[in-house]
Design a protein around this nucleic acid. Structure first.
Length: 878
RNA sequence: GGGCGUAUAGCUCAGUUGGUUAGAGCACUUGCCUUACAAGCAAGGGGUCAUAAGUUCGAAUCUUAUUACGCCCACCA
């Protein structure tokens, strides 16, 4: 056997990722029973250009677990998907090609998306070319396909052991079918409903957003103190940060117990500039401590306004349009009543067409001029709701949306979620807090384009008005459908938009509406019942902690609503990769590193080592030193394996195989075997608790001990006594040790271990990744664990002291020792005899040890198992 | 404002049901080309376990309080 000289990780990794692809080692076998199957619900990464080391980190952690399960004989179902539908793709396509979707524009069959250069992109930010829905979707598809290819290449190079035949993308027709079926099932079960209601609205993307996608940001604002007049002539001052909503004021409220204002309840107040009579009412949410204690309610400034408006059935004065600009309204007609219509209209015309921010400034001037605002606005810091991907504050705008009922199921969902085990467990708290704090049903419709359409149409009456009360739902057998392109049953395409005809629902689903059925997408729910039974619920859902409130929660909601089942039994929460300043690494901050370059420099195995060293749920500081350590470990595995196999070679050069149970006969070898069995047990236990990182640390440290201590100790016996029991025992033990380490390392470092495996062990299994995880055989009664430990400790102590003496004398480790005295306790003398010859050879002692007695007490004080004094030889050759 | 988590060597982290003198790797120091590996090997220096109090024969570990950092949640006029 010819062994390669140097380890070239990159070549090796290309070789094996290609080989695994060809041999399909990671393929799921549908014929295997559920009990012997392990199902992973892999997160489909958002397709948005490129993956970074944070992805490498968490995806590798899951792969490590999957590989462990596979080696434990389980039939692992490990799919991969791409989350390509939704806003991130639209945004990317808009900026790459400088286009914008306008459904009213005519389709151009000859149009092809062309990527712009940097200069053109900057220019296109202001003026995007409008293209038809069909053209826009084509551009999205083209771009995501391209990105997905890049993603796949990286994942393969990293050695993620997916069954690539199970690949899906959230925009494909299979996912559309499942998403639409899920929606229709919820409609049928009364859990989904359409409603016209004020919803959080992003004015930039012009779409509704859900509570889970909202984040608060601190931002500067100003208190404006505005004077209102009561009908009887009294005046009071309200304080607001949003004066531009004054024309939308529908009431003025103070706390019921606030004596300053309680005499006003029941009266009306007149808004300045617009002279609308609005009721003065008590409201619990008014905080006497804040501002002036009395405030205006508008449609809509915040959630309080929405709540109050709803509960008091007040009129709706919508003045903010979908694009965030103030819209035209007609004063004098309900709800825009005014005691001075002409003035109100005139004042309002100054605001029409302005963005809310501009209108704020304008109205402040007008108020100051009119005398209704006597003091300058005072600056303040306030928290404002933003769409997590948006740059402008959200508005509440009344629109028609689809919702899923979650508010009325809060308690059930909290209890139900407890049936899933989170790793680490304390992450359940996040789930619980989130569900408890919910205050809106899940809004699942988005006014966007690249997504799954709602399988719904509306009839048009004779006036051409849609009948939203009686939607036409698609038949489940016909899914997936696109109501913009297909007519409902009983209608012709020519009736689209015609009075007496129909229209398709224009909206698409929230991305989460699709990803929340990822377990069902994989199990082919509603399509292949027997497959569904085998793959649902899944065993493991890996994900990050910031999406417990979205992905984990929504998936639980859906599984519960559809089948009253948990979607999976475990959730593994990965930590974040953070910079030394403990801030999350993210692309938007420009502080990410591309994985490809790191792989080339350090190897995939090294990056995987880094990921494998981190515990679930704990953030990891990005530190390239850890890659270096992983890289060294890979090289060491390569070299040590090469050396061990050299020891195992017979005279003809063949690698010999041994039976560890029979051939390991020498006490020190048995002791080492015992140590390995302890390692196997410990690391298996860690793995079973999803604590793979603790397993890795232990495996790693024992492995270095194997190399630097045990191999050194027994190599000459293996080398020189090949025909005798002593030599055979050493060889058998080395082989056993190597095999155990290769297998234990295999989930973490699949490439180098596979390479070594291929040199000598394919007789057991073609790939190490399909070989059996090591187990512990029955223990022989003749050797006790304590003796095993003692003999290793004693040998180590003696060897260390001799090495120390040579090191102090600045001599090389092979320098001969002309004589050595060893002090031992009486009881250790027997043990020493068992390893004496190995120690003589390993330390290059010329002759024998002179043994004498030492008091156990004395040894204890020295913290040594034996006292060794050596005299080094005068010359290198003895 | 409420909650969760973290705090151990210069850095990154282990430390089991409380049990002698708290560990590893990196970095640092001093050596060594040794039958695979200089991407290696050997030897060595380095810590008041965030702070304070308590429980205990005994605390890095348990309790309480405090501080710092990270995260999640909260109605944000």
């Amino acid at each position: 056997m010819d062994l390669p000289k140097k380890y070239k990780s990159l070549d090796n990794e290309h070789k094996w990722s290609k080989s695994w692809e060809e041999s399909q080692v990671y393929k799921y076998d549908p014929s295997v029973a559920r009990e012997e199957t392990y199902v992973v619900d892999t997160p489909p990464p958002t397709v948005s250009g490129s993956l970074h080391v944070g992805h490498v980190f968490s995806y590798t952690q899951t792969d490590i677990m999957a590989r462990f399960k596979r080696m434990n004989g389980l039939n692992v179902f490990y799919p991969i998907g791409w989350d390509d539908n939704g806003l991130p793709t639209e945004r990317r396509v808009q900026s790459l090609f400088g286009i914008r979707c306008n459904p009213l524009v005519a389709h151009d069959p000859n149009w092809e998306p062309v990527e712009l250069n940097a200069k053109e992109k900057a220019k296109a930010q202001k003026e995007q070319k409008e293209v038809s829905r069909e053209n826009f979707l084509k551009a999205c598809e083209k771009q995501t396909l391209e990105d997905e290819k890049k993603y796949e290449a990286l994942w393969r190079h990293l050695g993620l052991s997916y069954d690539w035949s199970q690949q899906y993308s959230t925009i494909n027709s299979h996912c559309q079918k499942i998403s639409q079926a899920s929606f229709l099932d919820l409609v049928e079960k009364g859990q989904a409903y359409g409603n016209y209601a004020p919803t959080m609205w992003d004015t930039t993307f012009q779409t509704a957003v859900a509570q889970a996608e909202v984040e608060e940001r601190e931002k500067g604002g100003h208190y404006h103190d505005i004077i209102f007049q009561v009908s009887d002539g009294e005046e009071f001052t309200i304080s607001t940060t949003r004066p531009e909503l004054l024309p939308a004021c529908i009431a003025v409220v103070a706390h019921p117990d606030d004596e300053r204002y309680s005499h006003l309840f029941g009266k009306t107040a007149k808004t300045p500039l617009f002279h609308a009579e609005v009721p003065i009412m008590p409201a619990e949410h008014a905080d006497p401590e804040k501002g002036t204690g009395i405030l205006m309610v508008c449609t809509f400034g915040d959630t309080n306004d929405v709540e109050f408006w709803k509960s008091q059935k007040l009129p709706l004065k919508q003045i903010i349009g979908r694009n965030g600009k103030l819209i035209e309204v007609e004063f004098g007609e309900a709800p825009f009543v005014s005691s001075d219509v002409k003035m109100a209209q005139e004042n309002y015309q100054h605001l029409v067409g302005l963005y809310a921010k501009q209108a704020r400034k304008k109205i402040a001037e007008m108020l100051a001029e009119s005398g209704a605002m006597k003091i300058e606005p005072k600056p303040t810091q306030q928290f404002t709701k933003f769409y997590e991907k948006g740059d402008e504050p959200l508005e509440f705008i009344a629109t028609r949306q689809w919702f899923i009922k979650i508010l009325e199921h809060k308690q059930e969902l909290i209890n139900f979620g407890a049936q899933v085990t989170l790793h680490p467990e304390h992450m359940y708290k996040r789930y619980q807090t989130w569900v408890e704090g919910l205050n809106q049903d899940w809004c699942v419709s988005r006014q966007r384009f690249f997504g799954v359409p709602f399988p719904v149409w509306y009839k048009l009456d004779e006036q051409g008005e849609p009948d939203y009360q009686n939607p036409i739902y698609a038949k489940k057998e016909s899914l997936p459908i696109d109501p913009q392109a297909q007519a409902p049953e009983g209608f012709e395409e020519s009736q689209r938009g015609q009075p007496g005809g129909f229209i398709g629902d224009p909206d698409v689903m929230d991305t989460w509406a699709t990803s929340s059925v990822s377990p069902q997408i994989n199990s082919h729910w509603n399509i292949d019942e027997s497959r569904h039974q085998k793959l649902f619920p899944a065993d493991l859902r890996p994900q990050a902690h910031e999406i417990i409130r979205t992905w984990a929660f929504y998936t639980i909601v859906k599984a519960w609503m559809h089948e009253k089942k948990v979607p999976w039994h475990n959730i593994a929460i990965s930590g974040w990769v953070v910079n030394p300043d403990r801030k999350k690494m993210s692309k938007s901050k420009g502080n990410t590193v591309t994985p490809e370059a790191l792989i080339e420099q350090y190897s995939s195995d090294a990056l995987r080592y880094w990921a494998g060293k981190a515990r679930l749920g704990q953030d990891t500081i990005y530190d390239e030193n850890v890659f270096k350590i992983g890289q060294r470990l890979g090289t060491k595995i390569f070299n040590a394996s090469k050396f061990v196999l050299m020891q195992l070679q017979s005279e003809s050069g063949e690698v010999q195989h041994f039976n560890p149970e029979k051939d390991i006969t020498q006490p020190i070898d048995k002791a080492w075997k015992q140590k390995l069995e302890n390692l196997i047990q410990k690391s298996t236990q860690h793995f079973e608790k999803y604590e793979y990182s603790l397993a890795l640390s232990q495996i790693e440290s024992d492995f270095w001990d194997f190399c630097d201590f045990y191999i050194e100790l027994v190599k000459s016996r293996a080398y020189s006594q090949k025909q005798e029991a002593e030599g055979i025992s050493a060889m058998a033990s080395l082989e056993y040790g190597l095999k155990v380490f290769l297998k234990l390392f295999a989930p973490f470092m699949p490439f180098v271990t596979e390479e070594v495996w291929s040199w000598a062990f394919q007789g057991e299994s073609n790939s190490i990744h399909k070989s059996a995880w090591p187990t512990v055989g029955h223990k022989e009664s003749s050797s006790s664990t304590e003796d095993d430990q003692a003999i290793l400790d004693l040998s180590r102590s003696v060897l260390n002291q001799i090495r120390g003496a040579k090191s102090t004398a600045q001599k090389s480790l092979k320098w001969p020792v002309s004589s050595a005295k060893i002090g031992l306790t009486n009881s250790d003398k027997k043990l020493f005899e068992l390893v004496e010859s190995d120690l003589i050879k390993a330390s290059n002692l010329l002759g024998q040890f002179e043994v004498h007695n030492v008091d156990a007490q004395e040894l204890k004080q020295l913290d040594k198992k034996a006292v060794v004094e050596v005299i080094l030889s005068e010359t290198k050759d003895g």
